[in-house]
C-alpha cells in the first residue's frame, strides 16, 4: 500500500500541471485510491440519487411502503447512457449510503431497499436488451418497478411477516408500481431528450 501510494503520488506530481480534473485529493496522503473519471461520474450520479432519496423521504406517503422511487430516474438515465454496470453501482451506492444517512443500515428497511434494488437491477439486466426502437425508458422503468415490489414482498413474506394476509396489499403495491414506474420512466425519457449538458445540472 505504501509504495503504491508513493508511485501514484509521483505520477500525480508529474502530471498535475496538465490535469484539469480537480477532484484528486491531496497527493501527499499515503492512502490514495487510484480513481478514474468513471468512478467520479458514478459517485456524482449516486450523490444525485441520494439527494432524490432524501427529497422523497420528506414527502408524506398515504401508505407505508408506497413511494415514488424518484432515485430510480437516475438509475434509468445511467443505464441508458453508461450501461448496466454503472447503473448497478449507482443504485447500490445509493441504497447503502442512503441507509447510513437515515440510520437504518442493516435494519429491516435497509434489506427491503436492497432486495428491491437488486431485483430491479436483475430485471434491468435483461430489459436493457429489448430493442430500443420499440422500447424506451418507460418500459425499463415499469419492469424495474414491478421487480422492485416483487423483491420487497418476497423479503417481507419470507422474513418479516410470514402471513398470507399481506397478499391483500399486493394490488395496491402493483398499481403504485405501474403508476410511479410510468411517471419515472417519462421523466427519465424527458431528461434524455437533450444530451450534452452535465446531468447534475438538469435534475430537479
Amino acid at each position: 500500500m505504501q509504495d503504491r501510494g508513493l508511485r501514484i503520488e509521483e505520477r500525480v506530481e508529474t502530471t498535475a500541471p496538465h490535469q484539469t480534473r480537480s477532484p484528486i485529493p491531496d497527493p501527499r496522503s499515503s492512502i490514495l485510491l487510484n480513481t478514474t473519471a468513471e468512478d467520479h461520474h458514478i459517485a456524482r450520479m449516486a450523490a444525485v440519487a441520494l439527494g432524490l432519496t432524501i427529497l422523497e423521504n420528506a414527502i408524506p406517503s398515504p401508505l407505508p411502503g408506497v413511494k415514488p422511487g424518484l432515485a430510480n430516474i437516475v438509475t434509468l438515465i445511467v443505464l441508458a447512457r453508461y450501461g448496466w454496470r454503472a447503473a448497478a453501482w449507482v443504485s447500490l451506492l445509493r441504497v447503502v449510503a442512503g441507509s447510513l444517512l437515515f440510520g437504518s443500515f442493516l435494519a429491516p428497511g435497509f434489506f427491503l431497499s436492497l432486495s428491491g434494488a437488486v431485483c430491479s437491477l436483475l430485471v434491468l439486466a435483461v430489459a436493457q436488451y429489448l430493442p430500443s426502437r420499440w422500447f424506451g425508458p418507460v418500459s425499463h422503468s415499469i419492469y424495474a418497478a414491478f421487480a422492485h415490489i416483487a423483491g420487497q414482498m418476497l423479503v417481507v413474506y419470507l422474513w418479516l411477516i410470514p402471513h398470507a394476509g399481506i397478499a391483500y396489499l399486493i394490488p395496491i403495491f402493483a398499481a403504485a408500481a405501474l403508476v410511479f414506474g410510468t411517471v419515472n420512466g417519462l421523466i427519465a425519457a424527458r431528461f434524455m431528450d437533450n444530451d450534452g449538458k452535465p446531468d447534475t445540472e438538469r435534475l430537479p
Binding site: 430493442p131 424506451g136 425508458p137 418507460v138 418500459s139 414491478f146 405501474l178 410510468t182 420512466g185
Partner: peptide
C-alpha cells in the same frame, strides 16, 4: 416519449 413497446408494457402492467 412512449414507443410501441412502451404501450405494450403499459398494457401488460395494467392487465397484471
Amino acid at each position: 416519449h412512449l414507443k410501441v413497446g412502451d404501450w405494450l408494457t403499459l398494457l401488460l402492467g395494467g392487465v397484471c
